[in-house]
């Protein structure tokens, strides 16, 4: 069976669900999430996005020139995302000077390492971050209006188009390098495990 973005998700269904479904997201959707929990989570996510931006910088080092523009667009989007956090920090009581919690710092470090792996492996892992994030927030959308602006920010059509474009590159890389399939799937699974843990940083448990 050939490995593609679609089969990666199918073959890792349990991990996929853990990464994209969480009480935190359910309570965002039904509007019952305490604001303090959202703030705690956003503080860690801000640190994560900074690490993600750097990881994408490393990703470009090993990328074919044809993918430079897409990767640079990603770096730009994450950099803008940091600005978005900075604009909302005061109103949501989000502190931007927190230390990363262990789950966040391990994830950030793993992404930095992942970005320097063979390109097919690195791009698969970094796509996994985005596709899981998109799916999770799409699942949290369409509910109570309380957090709708935040949800829309993470589940919008522009982001979905970026993730789709990224998937085309991943499928192309996977088709061209079967020797990296095992490592790519391991990277995919590792990212999903990190994602699943990350929702817990809201401290609901």
């Amino acid at each position: 069976m050939s490995l593609t973005t679609a089969t990666l998700i199918e073959r890792n269904a349990e991990l996929w669900d853990a990464a994209t479904r969480h009480e935190f997201l359910d309570r965002v959707r039904d509007g019952t999430l305490p604001v303090a929990a959202l703030s705690r989570w956003m503080e860690q996510d801000y640190l994560f996005v900074a690490g993600l931006t750097r990881a994408w910088g490393r990703l470009l080092v090993g990328a074919p020139p044809a993918d430079f523009r897409l990767i640079a667009a990603g770096i730009g989007a994450f950099s803008d995302e940091l600005g978005w956090f900075e604009e909302r920090a005061a109103s949501l009581a989000v502190r931007l000077d927190r230390e990363p919690l262990p789950e966040a710092s391990t994830y950030i470090k793993d992404l930095a390492d992942l970005a320097t792996r063979p390109y097919a492996v690195a791009i698969t892992g970094l796509w996994a971050v985005e596709v899981a994030y998109l799916d999770a927030w799409q699942g949290a959308s369409g509910g109570d209006e309380r957090f709708s602006d935040v949800v829309e920010h993470w589940a919008n059509a522009e982001f979905a188009a970026f993730v789709a474009e990224l998937a085309v590159v991943v499928d192309h890389e996977l088709a061209a390098s079967p020797e990296h399939h095992r490592a790519a799937e391991d990277a995919f699974a590792a990212v999903l495990s990190h994602e699943a843990l990350f929702w817990g940083l809201a401290g609901l448990d």
Binding site: T53, G57, L59, V61, P65, I71, I75, A112, A115
Partner: peptide, 15 residues
Amino acid sequence: LEAFARAYALCVARA
């Protein structure tokens, strides 16, 4: 130019 782009990307990563 390709190397120049990669060098800038490394600078983004290490800024």
